[in-house]
């Protein structure tokens, strides 16, 4: 898109006038976070108890994972609305191999590790395919990922086979509800590890700088010698990888794979998280911590809706409004 001048011309002294809107834009996710915590503390019964807090952190897991991948995609100036379907494809692949096997190929059910590996690989393949179609074939991201979003659920159904739409995991399900030391859910540990890894990637690696450069100005990025095709493919593959973690962990937590509902509408939550987190939709700097808080904010909205007997259907409307408000504050002056 257009370049953003940093307006350094007026920087004459130490006192740079601070605009309220700029502060708000920078700490938007924190602002929403604090407001929602306070709001929840007042109106939601039993909100400030460990059980509720723990549930929040477990339930936010898939949104958090997907939103982290989405942050990188949006930072590169793209969008990925196929994330929910990729979650379903990944979960379906794991379930098919782990529980039933592929009888037509004479494949017996395999162990958990190879099944998971295939599930992760399937999601990465989807992301890879997205990336190739977008970067190499130059089709708009919204079209490519819309196709994968809608056709992907059909594909997941085909992968899962003719049996029912849901399958029960056994020992994998135990992992999904594992509590480390009996207290800390395993999802929290994974979140900490992945967020740390993502922050490292964004702050320390050239990859993130290239992604940012592509998001700011693709042409300029190509002219300075960045391989825009493979960096873009990498971004979408990374998003696919994170979707597979989200999909399989969520399947393990609720111990079923239902291709109709696994990861359904997660793209809205993820996009909302990124928008609240302050990553510009025109591409540019990826704000990982912003997205982390953004994801929690989205989950807090869900909790307000769920725990105060507001019908679940209102949450779609609330979240759509939040995305629009967040983008409104982001728009260029």
């Amino acid at each position: 898109m257009t370049s953003k001048p940093d307006a350094p011309a007026v920087e004459t002294g130490m006192l740079k006038p601070i605009k309220a809107t700029e502060v708000f834009r920078k700490y938007e996710s924190m602002f929403f976070f604090v407001v929602l915590i306070i709001l929840n503390a007042f109106i939601t019964p039993e909100f400030l108890e460990w059980g509720t807090l723990r549930n929040t952190l477990v339930q936010v897991f898939p949104v958090m994972m997907v939103a982290l991948g989405m942050t990188m995609v949006i930072s590169s100036g793209g969008i990925d609305i196929s994330v929910g379907s990729i979650m379903a494809i990944s979960g379906a692949t794991t379930a098919r191999l782990y529980v039933t096997g592929v009888s037509s190929l004479g494949l017996e059910p395999v162990g958990l590790a190879p099944a998971l590996a295939c599930g992760v690989a399937a999601a990465c393949m989807c992301g890879f395919l997205n990336g190739i179609l977008i970067a190499k074939c130059k089709i708009q991201p919204i079209i490519v990922t819309l196709v994968v979003m809608i056709a992907g659920r059909g594909l997941a159904q085909i992968i899962l086979g003719e049996l029912s739409t849901s399958l029960l995991f056994t020992s994998f399900a135990d992992f999904g509800s594992l509590r480390i030391g009996g207290v800390i859910p395993v999802q929290m540990l994974i979140v900490v590890v992945i967020v740390a890894a993502m922050i490292f990637v964004v702050k320390k690696t050239n990859f993130a700088k290239r992604v940012e450069a592509i998001g700011d100005n693709r042409r300029a990025a190509r002219l300075v010698g960045i391989n825009t095709v493979w960096v873009t493919v990498g971004v979408y593959t990374l998003c696919g990888l994170l979707c597979s973690i989200a999909g399989n962990m969520e399947a393990a937590r609720i111990s079923v794979v239902n291709v109709g509902s696994l990861g359904l509408l997660v793209e809205l939550d993820a996009i909302a998280a990124v928008a609240i987190g302050g990553t510009a939709f025109s591409g540019g700097k990826a704000r990982i911590m912003g997205t982390v808080f953004g994801a929690i904010v989205v989950q807090l909205v869900t909790i307000i809706v769920n725990m105060n007997n507001i019908p679940d259907k209102y949450s779609l409307l609330f979240k759509a409004v939040i995305v629009i408000i967040a983008l409104w504050t982001q728009r260029k002056k």
Partner: peptide, 11 residues
């Protein structure tokens, strides 16, 4: 609001 069409209509 100058929100890109795909994001506005996605919301």
């Amino acid at each position: 609001a100058k929100i890109p069409p795909f994001i506005a209509t996605l919301s």
